[in-house]
Design a protein around this nucleic acid. Structure first.
Lengths: 237, 237
DNA sequence: CGCCTTGTGTTCGATTTCGCACGAACAGCA
DNA sequence: TGCTGTTCGTGCGAAATCGAACACAAGGCG
């Protein structure tokens, strides 16, 4: 098995770490396909592996009495399973599944923990990543409390856009409605509003973003702060 | 300055740690009053001190274009400032202030970090606490997306109740409306609904909880999971 | 005791979102 | 080409919530 060179990976965490830290991790990284719907971590099931996302998007969801809603999103900026493994537990009450197909680099939990124990710089980087996850979900809680469907949808599309190549997203309205925790027809109406103002174009199973800045306006401040915090904490910018 | 004995403290983290870990921390703990409204951490300001809450409640809020909403709650089960300091940054884009007056044990960030570097068991405990904060805020994001005002209010009252002695909460409707991100009149109506079903009794500036289990029913599954995860991760139950 | 500030109860129209249903458009497939 | 299942557009009454205003009540203070 040949692991990719650090310069060849897409994952922003792997790219941000020192060459030594990457070299220590690389022998344990196993390239893996991430097909749509693949469960990376089951709710309350032992977390044996983590996944550095290389492409595609994974969702963290809460399943409750009233359905399933997204409470976290991980793409190539992140590491699926980071918070439980780095913070000392082996299971979480949340589902983690592949929401947009892609690839990842899988690593065993034990190997990652060992690498972190051996390198303070690696530990520091990955713990900071966990902090960015916290900032993201606090923002989600805020948004879910007081923003309109249209603003929440705009933020969500932007977050997806940050994690894919190109400006197309392969998504069903029904799936979006579940992620946001709203009615499917509400998603259709919000998308039509965005399309009416020329910010996106919708086709069947596909959303093309035409005006990224327009979406940021619609998101009304809901998008941006967590993303800036990621840049600051992980990439020092 | 005499620090309290471990058996005498109320903070559940301090009580859960080993006697050795507590002994290492104790010389750095400074008892401090926490008056209503005191800011413990300012938004994006350096975090110099952390606070083990002994009594009272601190809120974590996001301030955005559309107002301020609570995105985290810390009482005597917790440590204000844990996530930034333990995860390697010195500031967070959130406000932390005292929402119900009480007391705490203050510690300098540097002293806590040093103690954690010296004890793997202490580090393990406190990182696990951060994980419980994550579980809490993911639940908040979930609830905010799809639960009614009444259910959210019931959950919020229960979370407060867990963090105070007795069954009375000193709260204004206006404050509640800000915490939940809803209209003040909506809070009044929801409280009346809870009072009508005999679960609480409201006076001016004061809410008396009469039927805790009734509130849990109203919260419709919104309350409980994060609390159970705290018990599991911190207290091993 | 009576004023005055603050907190709470109440109302009401506007708006958003829900919840549901049904038809139209599209894509795969025979 | 025609069939079929899926996805999307649409409409509509119901419900929840907003947003704002005003009246009333409680309690502090002079």
């Amino acid at each position: 098995m040949s692991q990719p060179d650090q310069a060849a990976v897409s994952n922003r965490l792997l790219r941000a770490m020192s060459a030594e830290d990457y070299a220590g991790l690389a022998p344990h990284l196993v390239p893996i396909e991430l097909p749509l719907g693949e469960k990376l971590i089951d709710i309350n099931a032992p977390v044996s592996h983590l996944h550095f996302m290389e492409a595609g998007i994974s969702s963290i969801t809460t399943d409750g009495a009233n359905g399933k809603v997204e409470v976290g999103m991980v793409g190539r900026e992140g590491l699926v399973g980071a918070s439980p493994v780095l913070l000392g537990t082996d299971r979480v009450p949340h589902d983690h599944f592949v929401q947009m197909a892609g690839e990842g680099l899988r690593i065993e939990a034990g190997a990652l923990v060992a690498a972190m124990d051996a390198s303070t710089t690696l530990r520091r980087l990955l713990l900071r990543y966990v902090q960015t996850e916290i900032v993201q979900v606090r923002q989600t809680a805020y948004i879910n409390a007081i923003y309109s469907i249209e603003a929440r949808l705009a933020r969500w599309l932007l977050m997806c856009l940050d994690r894919v190549d190109g400006n197309e997203l392969a998504l069903k309205h029904e799936f979006l409605s579940m992620m946001l925790g709203v009615q499917r027809s509400g998603v259709t109406l919000a998308l039509q509003a965005l399309e009416g103002s020329g910010r996106i174009r919708g086709r069947r199973m596909r959303i093309v973003v035409l005006d990224r800045e327009g979406l940021e306006e619609v998101s009304n401040g809901g998008y941006g702060a967590p993303e800036a915090e990621y840049a600051r904490l992980i990439e020092g910018t």
